[in-house]
Amino acid sequence: MKVTIEENEETGKFTIKVKTEDGEEKTIEIPKENLEEILAKLPPNVEII
């Protein structure tokens, strides 16, 4: 699983794009305050880009 994290400076939010092993892609946008909480919940086999 690969996770790409991009900061949107205009909105102050982060866009998180997840690509699973089977090629499925999902995108979510979260507030900056929630980034550490989300990262802590990721499984250890995740590659963060």
Rank of each mutant, 00 (worst) to 15 (best):
1 M>L: 11
2 K>M: 13
2 K>G: 03
2 K>C: 14
2 K>S: 12
3 V>W: 11
4 T>C: 10
4 T>N: 04
5 I>F: 03
5 I>N: 02
5 I>V: 06
6 E>M: 12
6 E>H: 11
6 E>F: 15
6 E>N: 06
7 E>S: 08
7 E>M: 14
7 E>Y: 15
7 E>I: 14
8 N>Q: 05
8 N>G: 05
9 E>S: 14
9 E>T: 13
10 E>K: 13
11 T>N: 11
13 K>C: 13
13 K>A: 07
13 K>L: 12
14 F>A: 04
15 T>F: 10
15 T>A: 05
15 T>G: 01
15 T>S: 06
15 T>E: 05
15 T>D: 03
16 I>R: 00
16 I>M: 06
17 K>P: 01
18 V>A: 03
18 V>M: 08
18 V>L: 13
19 K>R: 12
19 K>S: 10
20 T>R: 04
20 T>K: 05
20 T>A: 07
20 T>H: 11
21 E>G: 07
21 E>Q: 09
21 E>K: 04
21 E>W: 09
22 D>H: 08
22 D>G: 07
22 D>P: 02
22 D>W: 09
23 G>V: 00
24 E>T: 07
24 E>Y: 13
24 E>V: 12
24 E>K: 12
25 E>K: 03
26 K>L: 15
27 T>A: 03
29 E>Q: 09
29 E>M: 09
29 E>Y: 12
30 I>T: 04
30 I>Y: 05
31 P>G: 12
31 P>W: 14
31 P>K: 11
32 K>F: 09
32 K>G: 11
32 K>V: 07
32 K>W: 10
33 E>P: 03
33 E>Y: 08
34 N>E: 14
34 N>S: 08
35 L>T: 01
35 L>F: 05
35 L>G: 01
36 E>F: 12
36 E>G: 12
36 E>I: 12
37 E>C: 11
37 E>R: 03
37 E>N: 05
38 I>E: 13
38 I>C: 12
38 I>G: 00
39 L>N: 00
39 L>A: 01
40 A>Y: 04
40 A>I: 03
40 A>M: 11
41 K>R: 11
41 K>G: 11
42 L>R: 01
42 L>H: 00
42 L>N: 01
43 P>E: 07
44 P>H: 12
45 N>M: 09
45 N>S: 07
45 N>Y: 12
46 V>E: 02
46 V>Q: 03
46 V>A: 10
47 E>P: 05
47 E>V: 13
47 E>R: 02
48 I>K: 02
49 I>M: 08
49 I>N: 07
49 I>T: 08
